[in-house]
């Protein structure tokens, strides 16, 4: 693929990244930004929603530990999911490295997007200081203006993160998959072990304070294992 073709093909996906990035905190928080949704949408944009769903499920298990409490710093899964979904859907179905590379690319994007949210929040604070005298005078125009600037900047942030991540990581992911040296059995087992570890840790964190939650988890695990054996 030429750079021009790559540039043109990632523009619409970057718009999707902008929308799901905005959804994470600013508007409307309907959870399009959860990786299960954003990765599936990313995969669908490339024509393989099923591949997007697979990486989305892996990332969702990991995202269970993300609790976006107040001012805490956390991963922004919207753009990360879109990038992961596109990369996963762009690999050949039979490639051994497709899933681990898509997961790597998504998590790397999450580091960058998480940082970009802090930049936007600092920029919002700067704008709030700039408009302080008008806001302190109760100017409805200044209040609306600050809000709209923040929303616009967050939309731009989501677009830029997705665009840059795809521009850099999409070609890189193809190069890595082309020289991937571990077989499909071990590659998938590694990814599954990572997702299971983080998910189990997250479930413990979320539920251990509730009475009998540990026993309920073990009860469910037993039932799930039986169902698995019956399949």
């Amino acid at each position: 693929m030429t750079w021009e073709a790559l540039f043109l093909s990632i523009l619409p996906v970057s718009l999707l990244g902008a929308v799901v990035g905005l959804d994470m905190v600013s508007f409307p928080q309907i959870m399009l930004s959860r990786p299960l949704v954003s990765a599936t949408l990313g995969g669908a944009f490339v024509g393989r929603a099923g591949a997007g769903l697979l990486i989305g499920a892996v990332l969702e298990l990991i995202a269970l530990e993300t609790l976006p409490f107040g001012a805490s710093r956390y991963a922004e899964w919207g753009t990360a999911g879109v990038v992961g979904g596109v990369v996963m859907a762009g690999q050949p179905v039979s490639s051994a490295g497709g899933l681990p590379v898509a997961m790597f690319v998504a998590l790397a994007t999450a580091v960058f997007s998480s940082r970009s949210m802090v930049w936007v929040r600092n920029w919002n604070a700067h704008e709030a200081r700039r408009l302080r005298s008008e806001i302190d005078a109760g100017s409805p125009t200044a209040i609306d203006s600050l809000q709209l600037r923040g929303l616009t900047m967050d939309l731009v942030r989501g677009f830029a993160v997705t665009f840059v991540a795809l521009l850099v990581l999409y070609p890189l992911s193809h190069k890595i998959v082309a020289v991937w040296g571990v077989d499909a059995v071990h590659s998938r087992a590694f990814v599954t072990a990572l997702a299971a570890t983080v998910a189990a840790g997250a479930i413990w964190t979320l539920t251990h304070r509730a009475a009998r939650a540990g026993w309920l988890f073990i009860l469910g695990l037993g039932a799930g294992t039986v169902l698995l054996l019956l399949q």
Partner: peptide, 19 residues
Amino acid sequence: ARISAVLAGLILPLALQRI
């Protein structure tokens, strides 16, 4: 949290099997 605990236990093996 209690519903999540039992549901998580139930679905983890099945979801991981699909992945």
